[in-house]
Design a binder for these strands. Structure first.
Lengths: 359, 359
DNA sequence: GTTAGCACTCCAAAAACACGAGTGCTAACA
DNA sequence: TGTTAGCACTCGTGTTTTTGGAGTGCTAAC
């Protein structure tokens, strides 16, 4: 990145800061008066002209002030001093609800964050793909249905009703239960491969086909790995005129309504996180891995509970959002979640009180 | 309601039909030319004047055409001849997925309907409050957690992890299982009253407290009776300029995002259905039991699978929506759902293949 | 009872206008 | 050489004016 002398930096900073507040193109005179550098508007004008040439600023039309380009925003974001004494969201009230359902927790969390930031917010619940099977339980529902309940590490529970052609005796069921548990317990989803499966089937003898469908269902049920997506505050975009024209609003809201698109987005983000190693990501305009958001910025925090169990909180807003506030808050949430849920992870095997989960 | 002579009816009908199509105030000349009654614009004007006096029409301003009042719409809706040979939505493709999860089914259904009607759509999954308990299964997760799985009629499954203070022996667990099942099987939620509970607790002896928490959790889990709400197509309101001004759009979208509001709405609708006895309801403007929709109409179909298991499909649109199409389609969907899911209900005990459910 | 004709109303879109914020440039100044 | 004052010019915004047309209500004739 180009080097800017100190004065240019200050001016650029001042311009962007002002623009973030007002959303209006900012003129030389404003900066001359507001900033603490004692410079006339003419001087500022010259510098602005330079900054425009360098690609940090642009003007919507000849006789308007300047607004930041994406490059300008990037400069700004990269220079944010990480959270001094900004007030920070506290989720401890929410965390009390920890032994309630995850689902409920995330619903509350997402609306809490959206409420506080006044921005559209999306959260993905921790994905469990690398989680281990704790135990599987099959039971008879009626003569042609059996119920399979799979409990994963973290007490995530999934269940499914399977149709069978012939009734199973309780005895047979017991045997199948033992068989399945012997082989699956402690394995992650990835580790349950064809080898394992055929071994189990072999030992199941006449019940091989049942095993087959049980295992399929188990895999199906668990690896139903569209991320669980929670959203809130979509309509907050209307607070920003620059995103409110109906064209934009429709595109945005449509994307926000489509959980699959969002899941893709989160997946992409999580890949980036894996590469970059930092949990906090800022995407400005085109940087975001989704076209419909080229006029927005996306700030994400990916929390990691270990064992590949992770989720992401994302906040979407106009490019001129209050990055500092959003970033510090997301960072704090990330830490809090990691601490609280993570601790639960740690202690679960001893005295844990981890929540329950939806199927 | 006032009697209108035949000519007035035809004219009113023609005016409304035209307005539904165009969304523009309709003038006397248009009707004079388009309708098959051979009348001059002057005559039509006189009749229109009468209709305005009678409260069926109104004009936005002196020199504009006429638009229907709510009373006009009501006249129109009440006179719709029920579905001649309109094409009708077929959900059979969707129904194939019947052995998949309900949740998935409704997600697909709601987006399918929204897609086809190009209108915001809301669906409530069948509520299960009057459903019977089929069986309950407790199992040990680890030394201080037990898992309770409750299967309801219709193979609706709910599960929850309960924390216990002292580990339970498998033996004790078995006894509890038998005890609970003996007393609860076949009961609806309403039937599980204090009497039943204290009887069970008495018999549970030293495990009374566990029973207590199990029962609580069971009740909690099941009667978590915020209706399950699915929505889709919210952004379709932007297709109608009269609803697209940002004021309106924000209010509407906010309501549509808030599942609780929608649940209330559906509850109100279901009460109306109970009173009126008909599954199909049309609310025009203020008639809808929700303020934020006073500029919209709401068409609902409530399907009833018997035993108090019912759900509602609702479509929200501008007052000038294509009522005929929407009503016939909703009616058809209602019938299809009742037939398919209802049949499953019937036959479940024999050869059913009903789906599974989320917690 | 129906229709042709006409004057009148009123909105919507287009055109005309004024305003002002902001720029770039030049020339003077330290 | 860097800074500043001054000025002409640009261009978007908001306001007012103008115009056109669609539609009505009324009257008078059929």
């Amino acid at each position: 990145m180009e080097k800017l002398n100190e004065r240019k930096e200050s001016i650029l900073y001042a311009i962007i800061a002002n623009y973030l507040e007002t959303g209006e193109p900012v003129g030389s005179r404003t900066i001359s008066k507001s900033s603490d550098l004692k410079l006339s508007s003419a001087t500022i004008r010259n510098e602005m002209s330079d900054l425009e040439e360098l690609g940090f600023l642009t003007s919507p039309h000849t006789s308007a002030g300047r607004i930041p380009t994406d490059k300008g925003y990037r400069f700004y974001v990269d220079h944010i001093i990480s959270s001094k004494d900004r007030e920070v969201l506290e989720v401890k009230d929410l965390m009390i609800a920890q032994n309630e359902k995850m689902e409920k927790f995330f619903k509350e969390l997402v609306s809490y964050v959206a409420q506080n930031t006044q921005l559209p917010t999306v959260i993905s619940a921790p994905s469990i793909t690398k989680n281990r099977v704790k135990f599987v339980q099959l039971s008879n529902v009626d003569e042609d249905h059996i119920l399979s309940v799979v409990v994963m590490d973290g007490n995530v529970v999934r269940n499914n009703v399977i149709k069978v052609l012939n009734p199973l005796s309780n005895d047979a069921l017991l045997k199948l239960n033992i068989l399945i548990n012997t082989h699956l317990t402690g394995l992650t989803l990835q580790q349950i491969n064809l080898g394992t499966i055929s071994k189990i089937k072999e030992q199941a003898g006449e019940y091989a086909d049942i095993i087959e469908s049980v295992l399929n269902t188990v895999a199906d049920t668990i690896s139903d790995d569209d991320l669980e997506i929670y959203t809130s505050g979509a309509t907050n975009i209307f607070k920003y005129p620059e995103l409110s024209d109906s064209q934009n609003a429709i595109r945005f809201l449509t994307t926000f309504e489509d959980k699959e698109d969002l899941a893709d987005l989160i997946n992409d983000v999580q890949e980036d996180v894996a590469k970059s190693g930092t949990g906090l990501q800022v995407y400005i305009g085109d940087e975001a891995p989704i076209q419909t958001m080229k006029d927005c910025s996306l700030v994400t925090a990916t929390y990691d509970l270990g064992d590949g169990v992770k989720g992401t909180i994302g906040i979407i807003g106009p490019k001129r959002m209050d990055y500092e506030k959003v970033m510090t808050n997301l960072n704090s949430l990330k830490n809090q979640i990691e601490k609280t849920l993570g601790r639960a992870e740690e202690t679960r095997k001893n005295n844990g009180n981890a929540g329950d989960e939806k199927v």
